[in-house]
Amino acid sequence: MNLKDIIAVLMGGIFLSACSVTRVVEPIPQGKQEVQFSFGGPLIHLFGTTIPTPLTSLAYNYGCKDNLTLSGGLNLTSLAFGVIHLDLGATYGLWQDSLNSGYAGLSIRPSFYLTTDIYQWQTRFFPQFDVMGYYRIKKHLVYAGLVNFFELKRARAHNLPQPKHWFWNPTIGYQFESEKWRWQVEFRWLAPDVRSDYRVPDYVQPFGKPNGTIGFYIGITRKINW
């Protein structure tokens, strides 16, 4: 294992906008609760193969209203490295209407990440805003949208200008619903307008071009009081 491989793991582990599936695509009914486990992250070349960065997180979702779900998550992988990494957000159903034998909807999700380490307690705040369109037929839901992640700091180390503040990430996904569980897979094209070569981590280059990288995620959600 060389330096590049090692750093690929640790860098992938902190690619914040890529740390979990979309927590809530379609708001859950009022009063309902669920717990979600998410696994996955940016795809990296490692050990001679391609794997998703093994980011894991645990989240709790609560249906505040029928069209508003609050959620909070804790990134477990970050925690293992001494970084308390929380995400808090709300999914709001903007619109929903029947379409053919199912229904379509549109949701928005403002959220933020709060991170701090247990060594020097350096804390960072990152806002995020997601827009998702979805279509449901019975137990199946497909969705697509844009995950927008924002870096508010103007300067990085050595007072160098932070080159980018808005990271937009096209996303597609699929959910399968059972009575007690929801299974979710998601692909995210991470930062397609940012060059992913000339970086320490060996990110997978979509379509062979260094335009961002691809994230792959799996979500497993347990419905608590449905």
């Binding site: 970084v83 020097q120 960072r124 981590p201």
Partner: peptide
Amino acid sequence: MVQDGAYFVLPKQYV
């Protein structure tokens, strides 16, 4: 190195 790899202004202590 951390910030360049992560794209964001992250404290190095995170990793």
